[in-house]
Simulated scan of single mutants.
Amino acid sequence: MTKNIKIVVADDHPMLLKGLTEELKNYYTVIGTAENGAIALELITKLNPDIAILDIEMPLLTGFEVIKKCDEKKLKTKFIVLTSHKESRFIYKAKTLNISGYLLKDEPFEEMQKCITALSKNKTYFSSTFDAVYDSEVSPELKKIKLLSPSERTIIRLIAQGSSSNQIADTLLISPRTVQKHRANILNKLNLSSSTDALVIWTKENKELILTL
């Protein structure tokens, strides 16, 4: 029975939290609600729900940070991320964590029911938008990154962290000229324009991917 499924819900928008909780209570057992990530983590740790539904962006701890901490504690709770974000960096971050579901806030409640049903059967359930963005935006960039040499990957990590060419040269004990040669090779492999800001912009857009290399 669905009423046997225990759920914790966390969202920092009170009206959305209230509306979602009331809808869920018609079918499941909601054992706790939270308006920030710290309370969500406390409730999940204490109550050990079957499923936790988390907004990504919350005060004190983000949904992703809550999931990571629960994963470190080896909790058995399964996680559904509920968000308005369709950007590739959020999609990629979700892929790297122990997340069973990823839904958009503008989707009908039936999608939430389908997701919870899938999780109760030890399956995963992701919004069709999630898969579309991953296939069209994330996967192609990952393939490009794999073309880079270890030295080039180190350099784009440093660029993503805000280092200038001179700072990279000092860090890696190489000449600025060598850094510039690496940057030129990186631009070529990533199929980017040779404009001054092209690589900086690309690293900002793909920071989540780069920093996990």
Rank of each mutant, 00 (worst) to 15 (best):
T62I: 09
G19F: 06
V8Q: 03
P150L: 12
I156K: 01
K204D: 14
E35T: 12
N4I: 08
N48H: 12
I7P: 02
I56N: 04
Y102C: 07
M1P: 05
S165M: 08
V30W: 05
K123E: 15
K189I: 05
T117C: 03
G32K: 06
Y125G: 02
R153E: 11
P49L: 13
Y27I: 06
E23I: 05
D135C: 03
Y125W: 05
K204A: 15
I56C: 02
L60D: 13
L75S: 07
Q180A: 09
I159D: 02
L60P: 00
D12E: 09
E141A: 13
A169N: 04
L75R: 07
L158S: 06
E205W: 00
I44D: 02
L54C: 09
I174E: 01
K25N: 14
I7K: 08
K68H: 08
P59I: 11
L54P: 03
L47A: 08
N4G: 10
D71F: 06
I39R: 11
K95C: 11
E141Q: 15
V138E: 09
K143I: 14
T203N: 10
S194P: 00
K121M: 14
K105C: 12
L172H: 03
L213T: 07
T124P: 01
K146Q: 14
K74V: 02
Q180R: 14
L211G: 04
E42W: 03
L24E: 03
Y134E: 10
S139L: 15
D55N: 12
L16T: 03
A184M: 11
L173E: 11
D50A: 11
T203Q: 04
L187G: 09
I67C: 11
L20S: 05
G19D: 07
M15P: 00
K144T: 02
Y102L: 08
Q161P: 00
L147D: 04
T124S: 14
S194A: 14
E72M: 10
S84L: 10
I91A: 06
S127M: 07
D55H: 06
T129G: 02
E137I: 02
T124M: 11
A160V: 07
W202I: 02
K18T: 11
S139N: 14
K181W: 01
D197F: 06
K204G: 08
C70G: 03
F79Q: 06
A160P: 02
L158D: 04
R153Y: 00
A160M: 05
P49K: 13
A118P: 04
A10M: 12
T96R: 15
F64P: 02
I186D: 02
K181F: 09
T29R: 01
N36V: 01
D55Q: 06
K204P: 02
N166A: 12
N185A: 13
P59K: 11
S88L: 12
T171C: 07
T178I: 05
D170T: 06
Q167A: 13
H182D: 08
R153F: 00
F126P: 03
S88I: 03
E87S: 13
D106G: 07
